[in-house]
Nucleic acid binder design. Sequence first.
DNA 1: TATTGTTATACTCTATAACTATA
DNA 2: TATAGTTATAGAGTATAACAATA
Lengths: 164, 164
Amino acid sequence: MSSNKGSSYSEPRTASTRRGPERFWDTTVAHDLAFLLARANALSLARMHAEIEPHGLKARSYSILSLAAAGMLPSQRELSEFLRLDPSQIVTLIDDLEQRGLVIRESDPRDRRANVVVATEEGHKLAEESRIAVMNSEAEWFSALPEEDQISLRRILGVLAAAR
Amino acid sequence: MSSNKGSSYSEPRTASTRRGPERFWDTTVAHDLAFLLARANALSLARMHAEIEPHGLKARSYSILSLAAAGMLPSQRELSEFLRLDPSQIVTLIDDLEQRGLVIRESDPRDRRANVVVATEEGHKLAEESRIAVMNSEAEWFSALPEEDQISLRRILGVLAAAR
DNA sequence: TATTGTTATACTCTATAACTATA
DNA sequence: TATAGTTATAGAGTATAACAATA
């Protein structure tokens, strides 16, 4: 299996006979925090989308609907900051939710420039349904981890996510 | 500060006087793993890009260049799987790196359909420079965490990232 | 003068399918 | 027949600037 005929170069051209991307896990990139975060997030997003797309939501619309349904009365500006999205993207997302009768925009009486996002009855129902779906799919994914690690991860990510 | 005049509704309309997105951290969405991962990843990406964009790289081109410079002789297909990108996106990324003289495509003698990506001398230099930049910016971000947590995080994310 | 939401626009990223050359 | 890479293209996501209403 190992045809090692004269490796006089600093980096062997024919290299090992092993193939497939698994071998990349030994490298420094693969231990990089940014890389690990990106990959874990990609996997998490894919799972979440598979779970809530049947409900007509994606990660972002789900977040907005959830905050509205939690009675937080978020303004669009607040959503923009919290979700790290441009204000114009928030407009589009809420347009969609509003057209589907899940939320409404109410003018904030304290500042008539601002809109406050409120969930309708339908919005509340969908928020609850999809919340359960998301939590189930998360629980499934995390079952690979010992409970102690699950708790640590949530706590540590909380610190990083809240930090600038 | 608290003008609580008759809250006969299940959800107060005028709510608390507190404003700003900080108050959303109490909600269930904010404790959601998917949300925390997404946000931590967004922050990590922003930092990383600020650091390596001056070098003409982004997260993805950095990963590819690093694997090439590590002498892994990755095929485009392997890169596609490892980075969870479509093969056609890999083409574009390598086209760019190759035009800038950082890598070359070599036909794999074992399978002439496949290309193997090899770093040039310039590629090695840039990979090393940017590796240091990335590690420094990461260290800075993580200094907010006790060392024990840094180690736990890397380990736990490694498990999640490697899992399906 | 500054801020909230909106519109328009250009740019990047992503997903898909069809094609070629090799296996 | 299946796979590696490529090309083309349409769709989604992102970033920017300008504008009206309000503070």
